[in-house]
């Protein structure tokens, strides 16, 4: 079942067209990887799924993006509810300069949760979901900026799952991490997909091959090909995809 249905999405920064007629579906509880060279529009596409692109001046969008059957570009869309439902993990771990506790419950407080018991309960469950609870349960008042890079990225994921989203958008979540940390985060993603639908943008083709169920290849603002990850990497239908994954281009 498709949780996100994108139909003929065109995206413009001023006069520059960054996305050209993108149509695709994302299935529930699957990891979809979007690969492609820098500047191909994959990050723009990712950000258009929770309208983070609205923060940029002078952008224009045509086409439809249905999430749970609702067109998120319909005028009057509740952006706060949309972003609560469709959360985001960024390239660099970016905890707020607050304590571990305040970081994880930030989204909950923003959405009006005040009850200390509820906050503590959700904090514990969120940190457990990213396997940080045992490490950090005695350090909840520590400055989050003092954690290691991997811990910070896990914390950011915990901060996100605390608001109970349905979809996680990940924009090269491992690009600032070392190999061991990357492997750990990838394991975490495999666990998270049981509960969430994940879309990950990555430069790293091995990563796409390792973690994803479905892979889409973007080039110059177009979706060249999308299919089962195994099929894309073993038997691509489009010559341009083949050039990219075999390393002849990109």
């Amino acid at each position: 079942m498709a949780i996100i249905e994108v139909r003929d999405l065109n995206f413009y920064y001023g006069k520059f067209q960054a996305l050209k007629g993108i149509s695709l579906d994302f299935a529930v509880n699957k990891i979809t990887a979007l690969i492609g060279p820098s500047g191909c529009g994959k990050t723009t596409f990712l950000r258009s799924l929770n309208r983070m692109t609205d923060l940029i001046e002078d952008v224009r969008v045509t086409g439809t993006v249905l999430i749970d059957g609702e067109d998120i570009y319909r005028p009057g869309t509740d952006l706060l509810a949309l972003r609560k439902k469709v959360g985001m993990v960024f390239q660099r771990p970016n905890p707020f300069p607050l304590s571990v506790f305040d970081n994880v419950v930030y989204g909950l407080r923003v959405h009006g949760v005040r009850d200390g018991k509820v906050l503590e309960e959700k904090l514990m469950r969120s940190l457990e979901a990213v396997h940080l609870w045992d490490e950090l349960k005695d350090r909840l008042d520590d400055d989050a900026l003092k954690l290691s890079g991997e811990q910070q990225q896990r914390l950011c994921i915990a901060r996100l799952v605390a608001v109970e989203p349905e979809i996680l958008l990940m924009d090269e979540p491992c690009s600032a991490l070392d190999l061991a940390a990357t492997a750990n985060i990838e394991d975490l993603m495999a666990e998270l997909k049981k509960r969430y639908t994940i879309v990950i943008v990555t430069h790293n083709m091995q990563q796409a091959a390792r973690v994803s169920d479905v892979t889409g290849y973007f080039l110059l603002g177009e979706l060249v090909e999308i299919g089962e990850t195994r099929q894309i990497f073993t038997n691509p239908q489009d010559a341009r995809t083949e050039d990219y994954i075999t390393g002849r281009f990109g």
């Binding site: 983070m52 949309l82 972003r83 609560k84 989204g107 923003v110 959405h111």
Partner: peptide
Amino acid sequence: VPPAYRTVSFSLGSTKWQTVTRVVLPS
């Protein structure tokens, strides 16, 4: 104040005012 703080705050569904009062001003 690093722009990333704002981006993250918005991405968690905060309003502009919440972002200003909870993240930007304290920093």
